[in-house]
Design a binder for these strands. Structure first.
Lengths: 342, 342
DNA sequence: TTTAGCACTCGATAGCTATGAGTGCTAACA
DNA sequence: TGTTAGCACTCATAGCTATCGAGTGCTAAA
């Protein structure tokens, strides 16, 4: 276990490095107001901290830099709660003050506000669709052969798909079909739709055999599409402001990853409850082993359905970011829950 | 006017520079198979071409690089039609072979294929909405106070918006309202909707005064949203593969521009018929004065409604890009027109 | 008109040195 | 026994110079 002084010094080093991006020397630390020891003492402690794996030295005659383990300890044990200033709070309030908003728009704005407040890249996962329940189905014919199928969920999400109509199907037939679907499938979770179709109403639907096939296809594709389209990014280029990412090759790997929404989704995994911090080497993907990712889940009626996250350098303002994410996640949860929990 | 030999040499220089990214020297050119002159002769011609403004010299002891004017001449007068290989053609065909596709998905795939074929950043503008006509309006209540309003256009595009319902409105009232709207507004171009609402049915609607206000708001916002959401990007990071963009600052400016869809939209302007090439300095925005943008418009029933484009370094494979863009624009036009022109 | 030849230019590269931030260790001090 | 002053040592970085060579422009000959 670390002594109090070691913790104090580690905290000072991480703090300093976060803001300077330069390896921190013993003298820098000893000059700080909250430290009452000479540089020699600090040097000894730093040496110990390095031996214990909390610090690293880029080269012999340079200062020290926190290791992944060092950041981890900092995040888990040393972090001080960050207080947001008036301005930041106003921005957050404004987001949740807008009442008439599309679910997708809220998510998009959230991402934007996140980057504005943190100056890092924001990643937001829109609410998980599998828990969404069917509210309404519509089929709007465009001409003799084509129509748009529209699915509305109880959360107000709208999915739509262009479909080819079977030959010779009439508008009254379609209307009857839509009525049947709405009657039988309202409030069914989307992921059960196919199953229910098969089990319960395929019989009645079989009069329009082809239509039935396409309906299944449509729903199928709707889900797949959803999986990757839940990812909202903002401020992807912010990483280039960081001095340790002045190298095009590093940046390129990161930005390419950000373009691949399916990979992001896979990396972030299912939204677990609460806050997750992934620091540097703890990340699986090579491209972001010099980055940290912090995510917070938001929930609908107590169940986590999506997440808000920040991607930045390992040398990130953890305290501030965590505070902002918690605020946003809470706000989103409250908003979602109050809207749809009745 | 340039002599035949000057054209030959300019062509050789541009060609060479496009592939090597290095200033081209006289010896390199004189060694080419299609050139039968010594390096000294080439030097004299190069000197002349520089005086005329077609070439530039990074410094005295370096080779020459085409100027914006040089590229312009190359594009306007020297370019040879590029033949696509079998593989490329297959990819293009596959795109248009997929029948059951959402309009937005086609556009997204188009962008992806563009980057795949060219290795540059693709920018695609989805079909202009102002020409779209209303096909169908739906209002789906979610609970007592909220509903989703859905607009379907004759091209199969679906816009939706969460709205607050006025207090105490009943579902039969909503149904009547929707029927009224569908009855009166079908086939009206979207941009006329507000006007028509005011002129023709505000009277009948006034029974539900509040609803009427929100309907207007909804449509209004629908348009605005559309304006920037028409932009689809793919392969934004490709620019980093170019040796002249190894500098984070240059790249940053470009990528930041790409994040601002409204700026892109403004820069690209209304889709004029046919092909547009903007080379280097010809671009208004500083961030892309070292880039070229090539766009081709696609049309619906003869009228241009959107465009496909490529953003790359000035040192771009113009011939190939132009061919690919023409293919795609044509394909999109055919697809759109055959789908919706009946 | 073309080309060989040659002096000249100038960016890029390699090698060298000086600088200084920072360390580890030792010995003196409280 | 913990702390600190002092000092030799390390090593990345900046700046300087010399060298190299790709490429030019000009002149004179073919």
């Amino acid at each position: 276990m670390l002594s109090d002084r070691q913790r104090l010094i580690l905290n000072a080093i991480v703090d300093n490095y976060i803001h300077s991006a330069e390896p921190v020397g013993s003298r820098t630390i000893s000059k700080r107001e909250d430290i009452g020891y000479s540089s020699a003492t600090i040097r000894n402690e730093m040496s110990d901290l390095e031996e214990l794996g909390y610090l690293e030295q880029p080269h012999t005659s340079a200062g020290r830099v926190p290791s992944t383990k060092g950041y981890r300890f900092y995040v888990d044990n040393l972090i001080q709660p960050h207080l947001l200033n008036e301005q930041d709070l106003v921005k957050l309030k404004q987001l949740f003050a807008e009442r008439i908003l599309h679910a997708e728009q809220v998510v998009e704005y959230t991402a934007q506000i996140l980057t504005q407040l943190t100056n890092y890249t924001a990643i937001v996962l829109g609410p998980e669709i599998f828990e969404h329940r069917l509210r309404n189905v519509q089929i709007v014919p465009l001409n003799e052969t084509q129509a748009v199928a529209i699915i509305v969920t109880h959360t107000g999400r709208v999915e739509n798909k262009l479909i080819d109509l079977p030959d010779g199907i009439g508008s009254s037939e379609i209307e009857r079909l839509v009525n049947l679907l709405n009657h039988r499938l309202t409030d069914v979770p989307l992921w059960q739709l196919r199953q229910r179709l098969y089990q319960e109403i395929s019989g009645e639907m079989r009069r329009h055999t082809e239509q039935y096939e396409e309906m299944l296809q449509l729903l199928d594709q709707s889900f797949q599409q959803e999986e990757t389209d839940r990812v909202y990014l903002s401020g992807a280029t912010k990483i280039m402001n960081q001095p340790e990412f002045r190298d095009v090759d590093k940046v390129k790997d990161i930005l390419e990853l950000l373009e691949q929404h399916d990979q992001l989704l896979h990396m972030l995994g299912m939204p677990a409850n609460g806050l997750t911090v992934r620091i540097g080497q703890e990340n699986q993907l090579d491209a972001i082993k010099q980055c940290s990712i912090i995510t917070a889940s938001y929930s609908l009626g107590g169940k986590p359905v999506g997440m808000v996250g920040i991607l930045g350098p390992t040398r990130m303002e953890y305290s501030r970011v965590i505070t902002v994410l918690n605020h946003l996640a809470e706000g989103l949860s409250r908003m979602l829950t109050s809207q749809f929990e009745k």
